[in-house]
Design a protein around this nucleic acid. Structure first.
Lengths: 131, 131
DNA sequence: GATAGTGTATCACTATAGTAATGCACTATG
DNA sequence: CATAGTGCATTACTATAGTGATACACTATC
């Protein structure tokens, strides 16, 4: 019960799978700082009831986030936000993880006829907005 | 027959849909300059035979690329690479199109604990490799 | 131990994406 | 006009992603 209050919104017929919408919103709230390390998330049943969704769908989102290293399971208690960077991986390794996503951006950017600087500008703008 | 020789590679059991693999490779070859404006692509039947794939799968890839503005249909002849930038859209509008993809990169980057500069560095590196 | 709260494994159902076989409309070329 | 080449519309099949109902294992709390 001592979990962070729900502040989610689901659009069932948006085409985007529900469990993925949940994942995105949890990740975003962790990144923005609204959810901090150690915070207890709403239980799958509670979240499911609020969002009018089956608890297994919520569970699937939680499980994947655990696999990603965003959350950790606390037996008998629920899911917690994992302490910030247990990432022993080097900066280079983590940058490598970004490559595939960046590839898509660059491909699309070149296809749109944008210059290198114009592509970089978009990235910098989005980064600025997030801070 | 006067089409550009096939230089594609398909991995049917890679998880990535075949038609999407074709799309990616055509886009990449257009971006790299190997395929130039006006070039005639292999017919759906020829490409299908080479890749051991049904022609409708190739057709699907071509159709989507046409919708994207990469190719254009030349009735009775086949598909041609569209003249570079019929994009009357402003730079700003085209940058706007990139936003969604960039959002994903930034979200993932922050989640990985990378600094703004480290994220930008990855983008610049990928851009450099493409030129 | 009893109870009520966690998350999850299992199984089943459904929608849809991906692929393919076939026939058609169209056009270049002779 | 005839022929052989385009791409596409239609239809059907299959695999799988997404969701959900149910039963279970585990733990905090009393």
């Amino acid at each position: 019960m001592a979990s962070v209050p729900i502040q989610f919104e689901i659009h069932p017929s948006s085409g985007v799978p529900i469990f993925r919408q949940i994942m995105d919103q949890v990740r975003a709230q962790v990144a923005s700082g609204r959810l901090k390390a150690g915070d207890l998330l709403p239980s799958v049943r509670q979240m499911g009831a609020e969002l009018q969704v089956n608890m297994m769908t919520v569970s699937k989102a939680y499980s994947r986030l655990e696999a990603e290293g965003v959350l950790e399971r606390d037996r008998g208690m629920g899911m917690r936000v994992r302490t910030a960077s247990p990432t022993s991986a080097s900066v280079g390794d983590r940058q490598q993880e970004l490559r595939e996503l960046v590839d898509h951006v660059v491909t699309r950017g070149l296809q749109l006829g944008l210059t290198d600087e114009q592509v970089v500008a978009v990235v910098k703008m989005v980064l600025k907005e997030r801070r």
